[in-house]
């Protein structure tokens, strides 16, 4: 790609080394304590409709070793942004993706097409980042499982109600499964495949 094309790309992380560490720790916190909502802070400014929270997770964790899935209709600005800042290959095949970004939680792809790993290597599975409107603790679906003391409740606005049914099927095939990171503008909550959901 010619050099001039990069001039208009919006900025990524301000301090890549320390910001990546901080974002990773936030993801680790939510992944090890499902249902916890945490704010990411020091946001990058990705092109719309990619939001700072989902962009942060990509910038901190994706790279040339992790093909990233985007809907085929996605604006090329976002593709250029992620390619430039993460160096990650983009794919439109769900089964090839290590990471995936779903821009709108109300418009979900067929989630079960994402890689769920194999019996011998269940870790070779996708992490699906789904952008939603808002995340709130205290009401909504009940979550139990590893990382959760007794049970916890999570409300997600801007997420297709069919998601929970789909995710239930995902956790039933443990240890196989994809893992989900829900991202509002600036906050995230995670649903590893171990989470059991009661709607």
């Amino acid at each position: 790609m010619p050099e001039f094309a990069y001039e208009n790309i919006s900025p990524g992380l301000q301090h890549p080394v320390l910001d990546s560490q901080r974002i990773f720790r936030a993801v680790l916190l939510t992944m090890s304590r499902p249902g916890t909502v945490t704010v990411l802070g020091n946001w990058p400014a990705p092109p719309s409709p990619l939001k700072p929270a989902a962009a942060s997770v990509c910038l901190a964790l994706a790279d040339l070793d992790t093909p990233l899935w985007l809907e085929s209709t996605i604006h090329s600005d976002i593709q250029t942004y992620l390619r430039f800042h993460c160096g990650c290959p983009l794919t439109q095949k769900q089964e090839d993706a290590s990471f995936a970004v779903v821009m709108d939680g109300n418009d979900l792809p067929d989630l079960k097409k994402f890689e769920a790993g194999t019996e011998e290597y269940p870790d070779r599975s996708a992490t699906v980042i789904i952008q939603v409107r808002e995340l709130n603790v205290g009401r909504g679906v009940t979550l139990t499982g590893p990382g959760i003391k007794d049970s916890t409740k999570l409300t997600v606005d801007g997420l297709d109600s069919g998601f929970w049914h789909e995710f239930k099927k995902n956790s039933e095939r443990f240890p196989l499964g994809y893992d989900v990171i829900l991202a509002s503008d600036t906050e995230i909550a995670s649903l590893p495949r171990t989470v059991r959901v009661e709607v």
């Binding site: 890549p16 240890p175 171990t194």
Partner: peptide, 21 residues
């Protein structure tokens, strides 16, 4: 280096998602 850290971090997240594996 940052690439190694990302690789380790991704492994950690999968490890957390599959306890004991």
């Amino acid at each position: 280096d940052e690439q190694t850290k990302r690789m380790v971090r991704r492994a950690v997240l999968k490890a957390v998602a599959i306890p004991g594996y």
